[in-house]
Design a protein around this nucleic acid. Structure first.
Length: 875
RNA sequence: GGGCGGUUAGCUCAGUUGGUAGAGCUCUUGACUUACAUUCAAGCGGCCGUAGGUUCGAGUCCUGCACCGCCCACCA
């Protein structure tokens, strides 16, 4: 048994990915008798490759699913990908554009073929990348949101909601992306603060063209569609103008001055131009006042024939031209700088246009109700808890969801229109004839559904719904969901609604919201900014374990990542590897039946062994607890501290000369084995590889080993405390050695001085350890400098090797240090004394606290006394 | 305009029921001690953003303020 000199993660990672998959170790079956634990992956888009956010997201899921698997759950992690409607269509269109083609050149069918080819390629790439980071998904179950079975679920849902009158079709103002040529939901329009201008424009009165009303607008081009001007009914300034007719400049349309509560008297001029077809507020006003709705734009954002001379101009070109024309006519009063929120397409960043069009909507208010209650009463919990507030705010003010998209890649809306009687037929499968007039002249709706209209079914559609099969019954509801905060509205909230609507229950009980991965400057990582660190590059250079460990240890809140941050993971993997090498080199006679619990209470077991065993189980306990509470970075810190600082830096050093002892070998070996188990969820590859070399013959892979159980008698707080005292003294001896340069062959007598008999006892019982680790023949315990002086004087006084203390100690430096320390002690002493003199404190504070303070005070006084002596000795 | 998060060592961050501040990196000093230089030993370095309040005692609880960041929102 021997490990190679270096941890060769490249071959090791690939080897275990393959082994786990070949042996089907992550396949979960229904009704195994074990309790189920289920996670569904947030399906990555098939647009491209995995980024750092995916690496984080999937590592978090992998940690808990590996943990639960080892804990004895039937752990299912459902993998898959999302067709990501607009996003994917956009990237394929871009690729097509390079060939100088547009999607309409190909036609719908041929274009969709291209998309499926793309999906095949990138879907596979993404799955492979997930495997590379070590994701222990049930790969045989890999789903895609446009699989046949999945599409069936989508259609089922559409029909059901339609039949309950929760889906309707209507003409409303929606967010329109002129570049993607499609409607967007409210969530898909990202509002960004944008520097713009507020233009003040004169609209002349019909009865007297020399009289004006001034309106303020940020989008002057929309005036082509104005059908009124509104003022607040209480605005004194405009009382005499209400009801009068204006002549709309450039267009010469007659429009009335109306009143509406919506108008803010303070803003701008207090008069608003009303464009019912191009602004959501104006739309409301238009409805209220029965105004005309004039659509002035083509779907691509160019002005249409309603725009008169501006016909054919792009909206922004038209804006410029209109301003010039108004200026020329003396109608542009002034232009102010103005910061305002402008909606942008979340997929292509084009400025969205509020646009009047006929779309399909889902009525959300009735769906939201059970989802609100479930979070309020704790059936669904958010981690961290504060996100539940964000969720509830959105749910309580929810608005109807525009679900139709004018693109080709997606689930086609299952609605047919009879061309003869205009009947609207909503059914899952293509109808043969119109049920009303029996016409066969039917035409399917051209649109597809919002990509989230399929994603919101993910937790149960992946398990086979609408069929009530064994998987669904066993694995659903799922256990936890891991995602980023950006996705709460798009996906989490809607999954909860779908869960209740179609399964009558929560879809998952815990929602863990992790931070966003940013660069060192705090900017979001993105391809366009060029600041993205590719997880695959990190894997290539440092290995997947290093990537995982480093990401998680930084994952408390948002992550500020630079390349150097991955060194900690690389170094830790290296440490684990080398410690294992050392152990395998030295531990040759292992008793397979050896148990730590059996020897733990052996009376002659040395303190360090008692200590490390206790530390191991304390760590196991704390790590388990941290994982259960979604405190992953804390779990890693605990592991790191235990394995590196306790096990490697202390225990392995302590037993350095004791390898021949079979008990030592057994202990070390067992501690390594148990450590590997708890490290495995975080760093699966390196631990699995080492396990391969230390496991008993016939034992299976580490990833399906049981999680270590903690028996309370394995934890020994007293041993941990004693060892801490010992370590403190060893450290102080090391330091003093460095100061006084005592040569190795010099004999020093051993003297213990400690305020506490218990401590002295510990030291005396471990004199051997003190000697070996302090690396001098007889160690000197240094409670104070003066005492040390005495020791040294006593030893060397009569000897010809006597050394002068002044010669080896920098007296001034030492004095300075002691004075500083003395000062601190005195301050602390004063504080404590004051407190103890305070009658209220002694009376009100818990007795133990008072007692502790008294003890501390005595301790301090002793220390001060010693230091004062030391100072005398120096002078 | 509303809501949320942050402000602790030069940097990145821990700090879980309030009890005299912790880690990693950086820097400085020492060690090539054959498991590991992706290492080991040690040192330097903090009135815990600011002003108040509660308390015997506040990084920790309450209030105001400042700065940074995020989310939501129909002031055109």
């Amino acid at each position: 048994m021997e490990l190679s000199k270096r941890f060769d993660f490249k071959t090791v990672d690939a080897k275990w990915s393959k082994d786990w998959e070949d042996k089907n170790l992550f396949h979960a079956k229904a009704d195994t008798g074990k309790p189920p634990y289920t996670i569904v992956i947030p399906p990555p888009n098939v647009t491209g490759i995995l980024h750092m956010g995916h690496a984080l997201n999937n590592t978090l899921q992998d940690i808990i699913i590996r943990y639960k698997r080892m804990k004895g759950f039937e752990a299912l992690w459902m993998p898959g990908t999302d067709h990501a409607g607009i996003a994917t269509q956009n990237v394929v269109e871009k690729a097509l554009a390079k060939e100088g083609k547009k999607r309409h050149d190909l036609g719908r069918e041929a274009f969709l073929e291209k998309l499926w080819a793309w999906k095949k390629q990138y879907g596979d790439t993404i799955i492979n990348q997930l495997k590379k980071i070590g994701a222990s998904c049930d790969w045989k179950r890999t789903r895609f949101t446009m699989d046949d079975a999945y599409s069936n679920a989508v259609k089922e849902v559409f029909v059901r909601l339609y039949e309950k009158d929760l889906i309707y079709r209507g003409t409303y103002i929606i967010n329109w992306c002129p570049r993607c040529h499609t409607a967007l939901s409210d969530e898909e329009a990202e509002h960004k603060d944008t520097k713009g201008h507020l233009y003040h424009i004169r609209y002349p009165l019909k009865e007297n063209p020399d009289q004006f009303i001034v309106v303020a607008t940020t989008r002057p081009e929309t005036m082509l569609g104005d059908t009124a001007v509104a003022v607040n009914p209480k605005d004194e300034r405009y009382q005499n103008l209400i009801g009068k007719i204006l002549i709309l400049p450039l267009v010469n349309r007659e429009i009335p001055i109306i009143t509406d509560e919506l108008v803010d008297r303070e803003f701008g001029s207090g008069a608003v131009k009303v464009t019912p077809a191009h602004d959501p507020n104006d739309y409301q006003m238009g409805k209220r006042h029965n105004l005309e709705f004039i659509n002035i734009m083509h779907p691509d954002g160019k002005i249409n024939e309603q725009g008169g001379v501006y016909n054919g101009l792009d909206r922004f070109v038209a804006r410029k031209k209109i301003l010039e024309d108004l200026e020329a006519q003396g109608l542009l009063v002034k232009t102010d700088d103005h910061l305002h929120a402008v909606g942008h397409c979340y997929r292509c960043d084009t400025v969205v246009e509020p646009y009047l069009s006929k779309q399909w909507f889902v009525r959300m208010t009735p769906l939201a109700q059970p989802g609100i209650e479930a979070v309020k009463d704790g059936r669904i919990k958010f981690y961290p808890e504060r996100w539940s507030k964000v969720y509830l705010n959105w749910m309580e003010g929810i608005r109807d969801w525009c679900i139709s998209r004018q693109i080709w890649w997606g689930h086609r809306i299952p609605v047919w229109y009879c061309q003869d009687c205009q009947m609207e037929i909503v059914v899952k499968d293509t109808p043969a004839a119109c049920p009303k007039c029996h016409s066969k002249n039917l035409k399917q709706d051209e649109d597809v559904l919002d990509t989230w209209f399929s994603s919101w079914l993910w937790p149960f559609a992946t398990l086979g719904w609408p069929q009530e099969n064994a998987d669904l019954k066993y694995f659903y509801p799922t256990s936890s969901l891991f995602t980023a905060s950006e996705i709460i509205f798009f996906w989490v909230a809607r999954m909860i609604m779908a869960g209740f609507e179609f399964r009558g229950d929560i879809p998952f009980s815990d929602v863990y919201i992790h931070g966003t991965v940013r660069d060192a400057k705090g900017r979001k990582m993105s391809k366009s900014l060029g600041n993205a660190i590719d997880p695959l590059e990190i894997i290539e250079e440092y290995g997947a374990d290093a990537l995982r460990f480093s990401l998680i240890i930084n994952s408390g809140q948002d992550l500020f990542i630079s390349k150097e941050k991955f060194e900690i993971g690389r170094n830790f993997a290296n440490k684990i590897w080398n410690a294992s090498r050392l152990i395998l080199m030295n531990a040759q006679t292992i008793d397979p039946s050896f148990k730590l619990s059996a020897i733990k209470n052996m009376p002659d077991l040395d303190l360090p062994s008692k200590w490390i065993i206790s530390r191991l189980y304390t760590t196991i306990k704390d790590v388990s607890d941290a994982i259960e509470h979604y405190r992953y970075s804390e779990a890693e810190s605990l592991i790191y501290e235990f394995f590196w600082n306790n096990f490697c830096d202390w225990y392995l050093e302590i037993i350095k000369n004791d390898w021949a002892n079979p008990t030592t070998q057994n202990i070390v070996f067992k501690i390594l084995a148990e450590s590997l188990k708890i490290i495995h969820p975080f760093m699966p590859f390196v631990t699995e590889e080492i396990w391969e070399n230390i496991k008993k013959s016939g034992q299976s892979e580490l990833c399906i080993q049981p999680w270590p159980t903690v028996e309370d008698n394995l934890i020994d707080p007293q041993a941990e405390k004693n060892m801490r005292i010992l370590i403190e003294h060893i450290v102080s001896i090391r330091n003093s050695r460095a100061e006084w340069e005592i040569k190795p062959n010099e004999e020093l007598s051993c003297q213990f001085a400690s305020s506490s008999a218990a401590v002295r006892n510990i030291l005396e019982n471990n004199i051997g350890l003190l000697k070996s680790l302090a690396k001098i023949k007889d160690p000197v315990i240094l409670p104070s400098l003066s005492q040390t002086q005495n020791v040294i004087r006593n030893v060397f006084e009569d000897s010809e090797n006597a050394i002068s203390l002044e010669g080896v100690i920098d007296v001034e430096k030492e004095k300075g240090r002691i004075l500083k320390q003395l000062d601190e002690y005195k301050k602390a002493e004063q504080g404590l004394a004051d407190r103890l003199a305070n009658a209220a404190f002694v009376e009100k504070a818990p007795a133990e606290v008072v007692a502790k303070d008294k003890e501390r005070l005595q301790d301090l006084q002793k220390k001060i006394e010693k230091l004062q002596q030391a100072i005398k000795g120096l002078i």
